[in-house]
Computed example of a mutant assay.
Amino acid sequence: MRYEKGHRDETRRHILDVASAQFRESGIAAVGLAGIMSEAGLTNGAFYTHFASKEDLVREVLVDALTRREQRHKANLENGVAVETVIRDYLSARHRDRAGTGCPTAALAAEIARHPKTTRDAFTGKISDLIGLMAEQIRQGTAEERRRRAITIYSTMVGALQLARAVNDRRLSDEILENAVDAALTIANER
């Protein structure tokens, strides 16, 4: 059976989207290829037409998801969106409650630390790019100072989001987010 031009790319994109949501929602280790392919409406055998292994898929998902976040940061820069807006959006209850579509760093960082060097290299490069873009949004200080603050802000945001998702007390979770916003804005000199 012959498929239309672009079918292979569309199928690959669909597998990436399904895997990305499942990884962020449930964790990489908890998600199997059979579950991904079933939700994608494809056979397990079709997986290997697009990816060499689960690790290859993990790496592709990370690069894709982080590239999308990077594009959002670039658009923020081009449109003059303040770093305060980025911080408040990231540390919102809406973001906390939607892990499947949220930041892959907050959802997957602990697991990525245990993956092979090639996956960690791809993750590291994308995180460095995101930090650089955040540093560009910070208005005050030398380039080195802005980068240091961007690293601290990003680390604060990711850690706070992870902690806010992990606790089972909604009030405490909200407090974590609110206090992290205040801390990040102070670091950014936006207060």
Rank of each mutant, 00 (worst) to 15 (best):
V86M: 10
Q162F: 09
R139P: 02
A30G: 10
L130A: 02
T186C: 10
A135D: 03
R171Y: 11
A19V: 02
A188R: 04
A21W: 07
G6K: 08
A166K: 06
D182G: 07
E10D: 04
G132C: 08
A93Y: 09
S20V: 00
G102T: 04
A109T: 12
D64Y: 08
D121S: 07
T43I: 04
R24G: 03
R165P: 11
V167N: 09
R69Y: 13
Y154V: 09
A143V: 10
R8L: 06
G141D: 00
S26R: 15
S20W: 02
I153E: 00
M134V: 09
T142C: 07
P104D: 10
H14Q: 12
V31P: 10
A110K: 11
A183R: 10
E4T: 15
R139Y: 01
T152Q: 15
R170F: 05
A164L: 05
A75D: 13
F47S: 03
V31S: 12
R12N: 10
L163H: 09
T152R: 13
Y90A: 04
H50A: 05
G32M: 01
H50Q: 06
A135I: 02
E144C: 01
M134C: 08
L161G: 01
T156W: 05
M1W: 03
E145Y: 00
R146I: 00
G80E: 03
E10F: 15
Q71R: 13
A183T: 15
D97Y: 05
A160K: 01
T101Y: 14
M1H: 14
R69V: 15
T43E: 14
M37P: 07
P104Y: 02
T124R: 13
S92C: 02
C103E: 08
E4P: 06
E144V: 12
D182R: 13
D9W: 12
L185W: 07
E190P: 00
